[in-house]
């Protein structure tokens, strides 16, 4: 479904990604991990055609997106739902309107908006916050709203860039449960994160980057008990520090 073939990207002489190759199948859930500056966000930006690689090919459903004409880029983006670390919600519109606008963008008939928006809001547990403005919501709720906007267009792929970066563990955990449920419904999810606890808990395929290079590519196994233990240890540590 998605394939990177020998993709290299540099910014002003600095290699953000170097000869990256991997392949994803429909319905996969993949973590892209690595320290800051490893190239995670660049990889997502390449999929979204926000930027072009210096060399290599990126294929979605066999179509080389690097060769897409600019007038076809909106069409590509309409098939990809994106969840941003900083939410990227329109602050002057309500949560309902933020989700509606994604439907307006794909040109869906207005008669269908209400049912679809209500459905995704129920799915992410924000039905009662529908008429709130982004400034009236917590970080976790904003991230759920961002996910709802990504889901409402029924995308082929969901890209999530550090979706738990600004959230506490409990909120992050419940958000990950939501992602897992969505993945079980057949959506392909590519999530950039450096949160090892989440990666360990989910037990999914991991693409590990460092300095723009793919250094590891494996399937993690669930380590839920260990995660909980580690979290408890962490909480204890915090308590001790306080």
């Amino acid at each position: 479904m998605l394939e990177f073939i020998d993709v290299t990207k540099t910014y002003g002489g600095v290699k953000a990604l170097e000869a990256i190759s991997f392949k994803l199948e429909n319905g996969e859930f993949v973590f892209v991990t690595g320290p800051s500056g490893a190239g995670k966000t660049t990889l997502l930006r390449l999929i979204l055609r926000e930027t072009l690689p210096d060399s290599g090919k990126i294929l979605i459903d066999g179509e080389e997106i690097t060769k897409l004409k600019s007038r076809k880029i909106p069409g590509l983006r309409q098939q990809i739902g994106v969840v941003f670390q900083d939410f990227k919600l329109l602050t002057e519109r309500t949560i309902w309107e933020n989700i509606e606008i994604a439907l307006a963008v794909i040109g869906l008939s207005k008669n269908e908006w209400k049912a679809r928006v209500a459905h995704v809001l129920t799915l992410v547990g924000l039905s009662e916050r529908a008429r709130f403005f982004p400034l009236q919501l917590s970080g976790g709720e904003l991230q759920r709203a961002s996910l709802a906007r990504a889901l409402v267009v029924n995308p082929k792929i969901i890209l999530a860039d550090e979706p738990t970066g600004n959230l506490d563990w409990e909120t992050a955990d419940s958000l990950m449960d939501l992602f897992e449920a969505i993945n079980k419904e057949g959506k392909t999810i590519i999530m950039a994160t450096h949160n090892k606890l989440i990666i360990d808990k989910m037990g999914k395929r991991v693409i590990k980057l460092n300095g723009g290079r793919l250094i590891d590519h494996k399937i993690n196994h669930k380590k839920e008990s260990k995660v909980k233990e580690t979290e408890k240890e962490k909480e204890n540590k915090v308590k001790v520090q306080i």
């Binding site: 098939q79 990809i80 990227k88 963008v105």
Partner: peptide, 12 residues
């Protein structure tokens, strides 16, 4: 920028 990222056409 947000509209651009979620696939809005220049016309939209």
């Amino acid at each position: 920028e947000i509209l651009d990222l979620i696939g809005a056409t220049p016309g939209f």
